[in-house]
Write a protein that binds this DNA or RNA. Structure first.
Lengths: 216, 216
DNA sequence: CGCTAGCTTGACATTCTTCAACCGGAGTGG
DNA sequence: CCACTCCGGTTGAAGAATGTCAAGCTAGCG
């Protein structure tokens, strides 16, 4: 474990900065310390789809693959804890339960990707927005219980355009649906980026997901 | 390795049969021997999205999780090679490079899921169909070079409805787009299920993907 | 003070879905 | 053997959701 310590170093990026382009050589793997990074794919004609959203503690990079498969950009100011590839891979082969831990994390990501596929394939624009907000609200470590009632508040880590890329929508549709949820009292907007959720259940009702946590 | 041999057994299913329901206890993991299985999620109101398509050699089930996360159904006649969960998990902890192998497979699945997300979020109906056909054509082990020219033929392992669930479309749209591709000479239909692709490049041009293999 | 980036809103176009009818082959029972 | 029905598939017409194009707003900043 301390081996990891020995080979780690930090990198910082500003909001909007690109970390690597798809196809670039990537000589490190990393873990997000704070901030948010996005993986996106781009088609020849410019259509873009986000395929990964990395929050603190998430892992970036693929063992045994030198080249990045996706564009990686910082959507907020970002700090990564990096490990040079080769030492990390050595560690991986020599330390079974590191690779078992990584397997667990990858399986969780796969589950998240599948949830995301349901969103992309079958949800309406309004459900997509509500789902996205609930995901951010839940994953955001800084769950500020602002009101002593059950109300929740957080900052969006993404521009409207990045949200559109996440959700498979246009930024105009994102904007309209945000306005719609605001008009209906499901969310409050303080500035463009700060969201207040007066009643989390009301938001959940808009996601299209099962109300109860659902047995897995 | 021979330990795996000791705990394996086979199960067979007919096309259309359900293997497990989401939430059910699943006391085994398995590998597909032949046939095709689908993982699907269903929303309360019945909307469905396929989130996994398992072809021969693909792995089914999640280590350290007793309960299935998705509905699993056989879309063709199917044979699974099953391993009881507990012995398999023991093997996994005792045999590092089994878990490393499983990690590689999971990462491949994650990449596939991300490709699928691009399809769901950004491709047109016609591109979705063309992409699906090219995926099946490529993954189909029985790549029958029927013509001595470069033409390709295979049977669809899915009904139109299952294709719709895969692609995030309605079955009517699937049907229309299939007719469209047929009308334009991109595919030939012999019966409802047998597809002939006279010119694979022509099909690829319809997928929206980069023409060249693209550096990864 | 005027710019720019990010965002909102409106009007219109397009794509896909919905609802409905119909087709054809395989199996079934009279 | 024939009629029947069911299932998977196709096709058409109409409507709804989302995208496109265009204009305009606002806050922050040089």
């Amino acid at each position: 474990m301390e081996h990891l310590e020995a080979i780690k170093y930090y990198r910082n990026y500003e909001a909007g900065q690109t970390i690597v382009w798809a196809g670039d050589k990537m000589d490190f793997v990393a873990s997000v310390v704070h901030g948010v990074a996005a993986l996106t794919q781009t088609m020849e004609d410019g259509r873009r789809q986000m395929v990964g959203l990395l929050l603190p503690s998430d892992f970036l990079g693929r063992p045994n693959r030198e080249h990045a498969s996706y564009d990686v950009t910082a959507t907020t100011d970002l700090q990564l804890c990096c490990f040079r590839r080769q030492p990390f891979q050595d560690l991986l082969t020599n330390t079974p339960h590191v690779s078992q831990r990584l397997l667990e994390m990858t399986l969780d990501e796969l589950d998240a990707a599948r949830e995301w596929m349901l969103l992309l394939g079958r949800k309406t624009a309004r459900e997509k927005i509500a789902s996205f907000l609930s995901i951010i609200a839940r994953r955001d470590a800084t769950i500020n219980q602002t009101g002593n009632n059950g109300s929740l508040a957080f900052d969006l880590p993404l521009t409207r355009e990045a949200m559109a890329d996440y959700l498979g929508l246009t930024l105009e549709t994102v904007s309209r649906q945000m306005s719609g949820l605001k008009r209906d009292g499901v969310i409050r907007l303080e500035g463009k980026r700060h969201i207040v959720i007066p009643d989390f259940d009301m938001l959940m009702n808009e996601t299209g997901d099962d109300a109860d946590g659902g047995v897995f």
